[in-house]
Amino acid sequence: MVHVPIIRVADTLIATVQDELLDSDMLALQEDLAATLERSGVGGVLIDLSAAATVDSFLGRLLSDIATGARLMGANTVVVGIQPAVAISLVELGLDLKGVHTALNPERGLAWLLKMNDNRSGSNGRGQH
């Protein structure tokens, strides 16, 4: 078992997925993220795949499930750093990760989360209206 650390930076939880992770490690990460979301009340989740050399249908579905679960808890999820070879393999495998927002790298992912959460606080009446 490998425990995937979840780092909190400002309003975002960050987790890095590596190639050596077992299915059960990923399922544990899904639960950890949900529990940490509840505890911390942050508005965003960023999952970094730049160290994942292989993304198969199991991991692909789990990323969708994590994003859906986070959305149900009021948080946005962005998946960043998908390698070119992984992107091509995913398309051929038949997985398009529909419903999962993606960005090229962590910087762009964080920028998107920031924008989304600005909108969110706006609609909550905390922004400038």
């Binding site: 050399a53 292989t54 993304v55 198969d56 390698q83 070119p84 070879a85 992984v86 091509i88 393999s89 995913l90 051929e92 495998l93």
Partner: peptide
């Protein structure tokens, strides 16, 4: 790309 296809 082929490495990734094969591993997947």
């Amino acid at each position: 790309v082929d490495q990734s296809r094969i591993a997947t």
